[in-house]
Structures are given as structure tokens and as C-alpha cells.
């Protein structure tokens, strides 16, 4: 028995190598940041990083599941733009409208995601194309609705973005709970296992009679739901929604997923790596800010990280 333990441990480590690399990078960046600036070391800055990562974490969570099935959701950016514009546009400053609108937005996100899933199943077109098309349609719709910031939200609405529970940002706590729930779902629920199976070997999954349609509807519906959450959060943070709120989130949501070790070909990875990826990117942007690096170079850094991450992980997959 004791002879077996080290083997299992080492294989475990190898399986999670990517997550370990990201964790190590996180620690290195933290130490580096602490050297660069005194203000970096403050609790408020660390809490700030957590707080700022909430929106990205929400979108990336849905994206992770889509990518695990071997697909991708390129409609997240436009969906956030549409949903956040609708949030502030429909609330229009009235406190009584907050709850019904919030529920409506979450349902609408779910519905758009399910539409993505249905189109993918019916048309048998790659998710890339379906969600790309959906993205253009949604962007057009939101611009038809409003060409600029729409409506407003009551001042108390910013509680979601800036409120605190036990001294921690409410969004960050919510993220931790949500990621934990999804991780448990992926690990223990039958449908969660199917997500991996469909992504790992679509032909095999079909031959085994796994319910691909149900998996797709779940995954893209959930991604839409996450966009609803992110839209509400971002509206609360910026106190108004506008038709380009989500513009950068399409790419941004893919970065933490691939950095966290989820393969774009599907079937491998998980939400824990994604969460570390989200923190890594938020931390990196924070450190670059402290170094007074302009956003142009932050863009370059993000692109290079994607290239580095995908080439490292892909090589690993080949070797195995």
C-alpha cells in the first residue's frame, strides 16, 4: 500500500501540473508586486483585486463549461452588453423594478444561451459559428434598443458591486461559492461527467448513447445565465449599462480558461484552474497598473499569455 502512494501522488501532480504552474505564477507575481509598491501590499488593494475579478470570473465560469464540451461561446460579450443595457434601461431608477428586472435578465440570459444550444443541435454547425452569428445579432439588437447608456439604477443597487459581507466583497464571496458548486456538479453529478465525456470523445459519447442535446442545452444555457449575472454585476458596478459594456469580455473570458489548463479541444480541465486564471489576470493587470504600464502593453501581455499558455498545454497533451 505504501509503495503505491507516491505513484498516485505523482500522477495526481502531473494531472494538475497546469494548475500548479498558474498557482506558482500567482505567488511570484504577488511577491513581485510587493517589491514594486507599498500600496500593493495593502489589504484594500488585495480586496480590490478580488472585487475587480468578479465580472470576469462569472463569464469565464460559463465559458469553461462550453469549452469543456469542445465548443466555445463567442456570444458572451454581446450578451453582456444587451443584458446590462436592458438592466439599467428597464429599472429606469425605480427601486420597485429592481427585483423583477433582475429575475427577468437572468431568465433572458438563460433563454439566449438555450437558443445557442438549440441552434448548435439542430443546425449541426460548429458552436464557433453559431455563437459568432448570435453575437452579431445580439449586438445589432442592443444598438437598436439604445445607442448609448440607457436608464439608470437606484443608488442602493451598487451594493452588489461594492457591498461587503464579513469584510469581504460580496461578489468575491459569491464567486467562491458558485465555483465550488459548479466544481462539485462537474465532479459528482451524472450530467457533469457527461460534459467531460462529450468533450473528450464526441463520437464515442454518441455511440454510448450519452444525451448530447441535454449536455449542450445545459452548458450554453448556463453560459447565458452567467452572462446575466455578470451583466447585473457590471451594471451595479458602473451604475449604468451601455451597448458596449461587454465588448472585451468575449476574448477576456477565454483567456483564464486556457491559462487555467482547460483544453480548447474539450474534455480536459476544470473550473478551479479557470478561477486561478481569473485571479492571475486580475493580479497581472493590477501589478502592471502599479508599474505605470499603459493599457496598450497590458493588451500585448494578455495576448502573449494566451499564446504561451496554449502552446505549453498543447504540447503536454501530445506527449501523453
Amino acid at each position: 500500500m505504501t509503495a503505491l502512494a507516491p505513484i498516485r501522488l505523482s500522477s495526481r501532480l502531473r494531472a494538475n501540473q497546469g494548475v500548479l504552474v498558474v498557482a506558482a505564477l500567482l505567488v511570484i507575481l504577488l511577491i513581485f508586486g510587493a517589491f514594486i509598491s507599498d500600496r500593493f501590499r495593502t489589504t484594500s488593494n488585495i480586496l480590490n483585486i478580488f472585487e475587480q475579478s468578479t465580472g470576469l470570473a462569472l463569464v469565464s465560469l460559463g465559458q469553461t463549461l462550453a469549452i469543456l464540451t469542445g465548443g466555445i461561446d463567442l456570444s458572451v460579450g454581446s450578451m453582456i452588453s444587451l443584458l446590462s443595457t436592458l438592466t439599467s434601461g428597464l429599472i429606469a431608477g425605480k427601486v420597485s423594478m429592481v427585483l423583477p428586472v433582475a429575475i427577468g435578465i437572468l431568465l433572458l440570459g438563460l433563454l439566449i444561451g438555450i437558443c445557442n444550444g438549440l441552434l448548435i443541435i439542430w443546425l449541426r454547425v460548429h458552436p464557433l459559428i453559431v455563437t459568432l452569428g448570435m453575437s452579431a445579432v445580439l449586438q445589432g439588437i442592443v444598438l437598436l434598443y439604445s445607442l448609448g447608456p440607457a436608464g439608470s439604477v437606484p443608488p442602493s443597487f451598487n451594493f452588489l458591486a461594492y457591498g461587503k459581507v464579513l469584510g469581504l466583497p460580496i461578489g468575491a464571496v459569491f464567486i467562491l461559492v458558485l465555483f465550488l458548486l459548479v466544481a462539485l456538479f462537474l465532479r459528482y453529478a451524472r450530467l457533469g461527467r457527461y460534459i467531460y465525456a462529450v468533450g473528450d470523445d464526441e463520437v464515442g459519447a454518441r455511440l454510448m448513447g450519452l444525451p448530447r442535446a441535454r449536455v449542450m442545452l445545459t452548458v450554453y444555457g448556463f453560459s447565458g445565465f452567467c452572462c446575466g449575472l455578470a451583466a447585473i454585476y457590471l451594471t451595479s458596478r458602473f451604475s449604468v449599462g451601455q451597448p458596449y459594456t461587454g465588448l472585451n469580455y468575449t476574448l477576456a473570458s477565454i483567456t483564464p480558461v486556457v491559462v487555467g489548463g482547460t483544453l480548447l479541444s474539450g474534455g480536459k480541465g476544470g473550473v478551479f484552474g479557470t478561477l486561478l486564471g481569473v485571479y492571475l489576470i486580475s493580479l497581472l493587470n493590477n501589478v502592471l497598473n502599479f508599474m505605470d504600464v499603459s493599457t496598450h502593453y497590458q493588451l500585448i501581455a494578455q495576448g502573449l499569455i494566451v499564446i504561451a499558455a496554449v502552446s505549453i498545454y498543447v504540447e503536454k497533451k501530445k506527449r501523453v
Partner: peptide, 17 residues
Amino acid sequence: SVSPFLATLATMIVLQG
């Protein structure tokens, strides 16, 4: 073996930067 989508997206971003 990077997917064409991601490879060209990344070069697009880097070039943009």
C-alpha cells in the same frame, strides 16, 4: 497545434497592442 481561432485571435490582440 493551437486552434486556428485562438492562434489568430492572440496574434490579432498582440498586433493591436
